[in-house]
Nucleic acid binder design. Structure first.
Lengths: 90, 90
DNA sequence: CCTTCTTGCTATCTTTTGTGTAGCGATTTA
DNA sequence: TAAATCGCTACACAAAAGATAGCAAGAAGG
């Protein structure tokens, strides 16, 4: 699936996740995704823009309508991942 | 998020997606994920097993209960991805 | 029992992708 | 007008993935 190919690249999911908090600048995203290199961040942002999931607004990068739809699908993973992480430590 | 780190590796999402069709052998997964190398497939299977998402059953690799839960979250992406792919070609 | 298949997987090599760090040119702020 | 901040590029190195060959173990068949 083409979507999984896109999302299965480093930081792709992370960037979308971060942007769900609202628009932010390149450097803000960089700070939040602590270990991402500018090279990769720039590449991911380009890909995600070409895929119509994010765009550049007045205050920085933000999710498009489509991107927000995708995040809605992604959101349940947050809670689930916490329960899953707890289960691992046993 | 640790989950995104795991799922954001090549073929991780793909393998889970394939295994939702039922248990299958190493070579069957390899055939379905056309371009995956045995090196990476083996590594992903190991990681996914250590994460409790898949396991080895009588007829090959299969989703665990936890893995099936994750797939439930993943399932909506199928239909959504099709609509999204159509939108891209315009 | 011995051969032949298929199994999961390892070894090795090449190519691709990502990291780390420095810094540039343009724009905003003081 | 100087300093800060912006998005981003350049470059060297490291890590991850791809491609292909083939091995050891078990099952299947004669």
């Amino acid at each position: 699936m083409a979507l999984f190919d896109l999302l299965g690249r480093s930081w792709a999911l992370g960037v979308i996740w971060q942007l769900s908090d609202g628009a932010m600048t390149f450097r803000q995203i960089q700070d939040r995704c602590e270990t991402v290199s500018p090279t990769v961040l720039n590449r991911r942002l380009k890909e995600l823009r070409e895929s119509g999931l994010i765009e550049r607004g007045a205050t920085g990068y933000q999710l498009t309508e489509t991107g927000a739809e995708l995040f809605d699908l992604l959101q349940p993973f947050g809670a689930w991942s916490q329960r899953w992480a707890k289960g691992l430590n046993r």
